[in-house]
Amino acid sequence: MDSKHNMSGSWTQRERGPEFWKVARLACQLAGTVDVSFFFLFHILDSPILAWINVISVAIYVAAYCALERKQNRLAIRLIWLEVIVHSALGTIMIGWGSGFHYYLLMFIPALFVTMPFQKAVLALAGLWLYYVGLDILMWSIEPVQPISSSALLGVHLFNLSIVFAMFSYLSYFYLSMVLSAQRKLRLLATVDSLTGLFNRRHGSYLAEKEIARFQRAGHPVAFMLLDVDHFKSINDRYGHDIGDRVLTQIGQLIPEQLRTQDLVARWGGEEFLIILPDTDISSALASAYSGPS
């Protein structure tokens, strides 16, 4: 149980890359800007208490942003949690449920599963639900402490709704971009040899079978060359595997330069390389094999 929990926690830490914390910094900037807007808005609506609450909120977001800049990510997340939970409750209690301040609590739902392991995220989600429902029930039993006119309340509601809608849209775009980026990386890892940048053996086999099937179906000739590096073991033994890897990398760059754009190269294994020559007969393949640098 403990080992699974630790693995889950470490997985979450790995998956939260620089892009996530970049978005967190941007969220602090946007939230601080919104609170500055609220400061002036509530002064216009003659609600000085709510106006000065937003000054405190701006200060918290500045502190969270500075913590993110110093890589104090846990502190930053706690500050953001504190601000949103307290500010949502105060705004709702002061001017009513119709103000829409409670919508900001919903933005934590996707963030929970990115910022903590799954089990903790589920518990935090249950606590967030209880808090949200409790605030809803509370506002059924009490009147707003500092009510504002219905037209002003509608304006605040639409403003909050628009901000949350825009931020949810951006977060959805961000998470979609993360998923698509992860898929591209997985496809790349499945087809490319990490050392040489050429196709790996698995994808090379697939391409070879594809060309053979094309030959059997339409009669298009295809040739294959299998190359290996002479005395490669002695290079590793004498200079070490790091130098051997450099040699393979250089060869992986050299081989495609000697071929046509339609030819395919794969690292077949170790110091062996497979070259696939579509639409090439045996005489052209032999000419290609002997035309490279000596």
Results as ranks from 00 to 15, higher is better:
190 A>D: 10
190 A>C: 11
190 A>I: 10
190 A>H: 07
190 A>G: 07
191 T>G: 02
191 T>R: 01
191 T>C: 07
191 T>A: 06
193 D>I: 03
193 D>E: 11
193 D>L: 02
194 S>V: 12
195 L>C: 09
195 L>T: 10
195 L>P: 03
196 T>Y: 00
196 T>R: 00
196 T>V: 08
196 T>D: 02
197 G>T: 14
197 G>E: 14
197 G>L: 12
198 L>D: 01
198 L>R: 01
198 L>S: 01
199 F>H: 03
199 F>C: 06
200 N>S: 12
200 N>C: 10
201 R>P: 02
201 R>M: 09
201 R>D: 13
202 R>I: 12
202 R>V: 13
203 H>Y: 15
203 H>P: 02
204 G>I: 02
204 G>A: 07
204 G>C: 07
204 G>D: 07
205 S>R: 01
205 S>Q: 10
208 A>Y: 04
208 A>M: 15
208 A>W: 03
209 E>D: 15
209 E>W: 05
209 E>S: 14
210 K>L: 15
210 K>R: 15
210 K>Y: 14
210 K>C: 15
211 E>N: 04
212 I>T: 14
213 A>N: 15
213 A>M: 13
214 R>V: 04
215 F>R: 04
215 F>V: 02
216 Q>N: 15
217 R>Q: 13
217 R>A: 13
217 R>S: 13
217 R>N: 11
217 R>F: 05
217 R>E: 14
217 R>L: 10
218 A>I: 10
218 A>L: 15
218 A>F: 14
219 G>C: 11
220 H>Q: 10
221 P>T: 07
221 P>M: 06
221 P>W: 03
222 V>N: 03
222 V>S: 05
223 A>I: 02
223 A>H: 02
223 A>N: 02
223 A>E: 00
224 F>C: 03
224 F>E: 03
224 F>W: 09
225 M>R: 01
225 M>Y: 09
225 M>Q: 07
225 M>C: 12
225 M>I: 13
226 L>F: 13
226 L>V: 08
228 D>W: 07
228 D>Q: 05
228 D>A: 06
228 D>V: 03
228 D>K: 01
228 D>E: 12
228 D>F: 08
229 V>G: 01
230 D>Q: 11
230 D>P: 03
230 D>W: 09
230 D>T: 09
231 H>L: 09
231 H>M: 09
231 H>Q: 11
231 H>P: 01
232 F>V: 05
232 F>S: 02
232 F>A: 04
232 F>Q: 02
233 K>E: 11
233 K>S: 11
234 S>T: 13
235 I>G: 02
235 I>L: 07
235 I>Y: 01
236 N>V: 06
236 N>R: 05
237 D>M: 05
237 D>E: 09
237 D>R: 03
237 D>C: 08
238 R>Q: 14
238 R>C: 11
240 G>P: 03
241 H>V: 08
242 D>N: 10
242 D>I: 14
242 D>A: 13
242 D>W: 09
243 I>H: 11
243 I>P: 03
243 I>D: 02
243 I>L: 15
243 I>N: 06
243 I>W: 05
244 G>C: 05
244 G>M: 01
245 D>N: 12
245 D>L: 10
245 D>P: 04
246 R>A: 04
246 R>W: 00
246 R>L: 10
247 V>M: 07
247 V>K: 01
247 V>L: 12
247 V>D: 01
